[in-house]
């Protein structure tokens, strides 16, 4: 039974390798984590060398890729932070002309599993040889894509008019309460210092190689901006990266920005940020 099972396995893998390029596009990223892996793999294998890169978290992930233009690549990882993207740039040895660094979520360390997946030599080699080893080549993508289409139909049928509305006020209040609780804790000073030091090393390295690094803080709900964690992070960052030595885009926290949940911008607001970024790039040129 064992040798026959191995033969079936080899045939199945080979069959998928040959069938995959001829199958219709039915791609659906199953979940946030997989989307992060997809993004990092696309950066390693497909991104042009002269692309401008945005490193950040789910906050800057809201920036519309189409509006940013084809010359921009997003290394924005929901659940992660800019250190993952910066590490990826450094370890691939790239020198993008412009690197945007979102500074809101610097306390999250670089995601080692993701970096290992994207950068390990044998995986890179396999992915170069066959698309089935890339994220979008997984058989499940097609299955999930099909089920997603079915689920979308079913979801429409199931929703009540009330449910179809945007996040209601009660839910928004609950989420804001949780955000406030989370952001009103002072970060561990040792951890903050470690993360800032790492950020400094990566940014200085990029600048030495010739990249233009622009730091920016994504706007979020005004009532949260002065809580303990964002304040401590902001102060520490401005001390390490003073505006007279490093390039900052000030997105003015004083403005009242609309958010979907206190933290993330809706598309219209995110588009305003994109416009400011593109304008800033033009001025800096």
């Amino acid at each position: 039974m064992i040798p026959r099972a191995f033969i079936v396995c080899i045939l199945a893998v080979l069959g998928w390798h040959f069938a995959r390029p001829h199958l219709p596009g039915f791609y659906a990223v199953p979940g946030q984590q997989r989307a992060n892996y997809l993004r990092s793999q696309q950066f390693v294998h497909d991104a042009p060398a002269d692309a401008k890169v945005i490193c950040g978290s789910s906050m800057s992930d809201r920036l519309d890729a189409v509006k940013l233009g084809a010359d921009h690549v997003k290394l924005t990882f929901p659940g992660g932070g800019p250190l993952t993207g910066l590490d990826l740039i450094q370890k691939t040895g790239r020198t993008p002309p412009v690197v945007w660094v979102e500074t809101n979520v610097i306390l999250r360390a670089a995601e080692e599993d993701l970096l290992d997946d994207a950068l390990s030599a044998w995986r890179r080699e396999l992915r170069e040889r066959s698309p089935i080893f890339k994220e979008e080549g997984r058989p499940s993508e097609f299955g999930v894509g099909f089920l997603k289409a079915v689920a979308t139909k079913a979801a429409k049928a199931l929703e009540t008019p009330k449910a179809a509305a945007a996040l209601d006020q009660d839910t928004f209040n609950d989420v804001m309460k949780a955000n406030r609780k989370h952001l009103d804790r002072k970060p561990d000073p040792k951890d903050l210092a470690t993360k800032i030091a790492r950020l400094g090393t990566l940014i200085d390295d990029l600048q030495t190689k010739g990249s233009k690094v622009i730091l920016f803080e994504m706007p979020f709900d005004q009532s949260l901006t002065e809580l303990a964690e964002p304040t401590a992070v902001r102060n520490a960052l401005h001390e390490r990266f003073p505006a007279d030595c490093y390039c900052w885009l000030d997105l003015s926290q004083a403005e009242a920005w609309q958010t979907t949940d206190g933290i993330h911008l809706p598309p219209a607001e995110a588009d305003k940020v994109v416009a400011r970024m593109l304008e800033f790039e033009k001025e800096a040129r």
């Binding site: 099909f146 997603k148 689920a151 079913a154 979801a155 929703e159 209601d168 009660d170």
Partner: peptide
């Protein structure tokens, strides 16, 4: 209170 997420369900 909120909407169905077809991607998660799938």
């Amino acid at each position: 209170r909120a909407t169905t997420n077809p991607e998660l369900v799938a």
